[in-house]
Amino acid sequence: MSFSVEFDKKQNVLLVRMSGELDHHSSEQLKTKWKEQLHNQDIKHVVINLEMLSFMDSSGLGVILGRYKEVKQIGGEMVVCSISPAVQRLFELAGMFKIIRLEENEKYALMSLGVAS
């Protein structure tokens, strides 16, 4: 299954909805698009919705860590939601939850950042 990403903006939060398989190949296009969104808009926080993501490897972790550094620089927070057990295991292995907060779904993630739905 190929990869696709959809961006949405709620107040100062960038929503990143990923679907399909995120590997080294697809992480390149994700990185370009994601950087563009972060730089061209008035954004502070990021919510990553992984509900439709069926696969991720360490290349995906690399791109997320790269954007985390950018968000941290502007004093924002990164939240991930709707994660599958397999991807959650990968996040745990890499210690990602020490820096990225986990929420059950998009609604809770947005609420935690002060965005009313």
């Binding site: 990185k31 490897d57 360490s58 290349s59 972790l61 690399g62 791109v63 860590l65 990968l90 890499a94």
Partner: peptide, 11 residues
């Protein structure tokens, strides 16, 4: 510089 996580072998 390529934003690799360095987790490949650990995984």
């Amino acid at each position: 510089e390529l934003e690799r996580s360095g987790m490949g072998f650990t995984i």
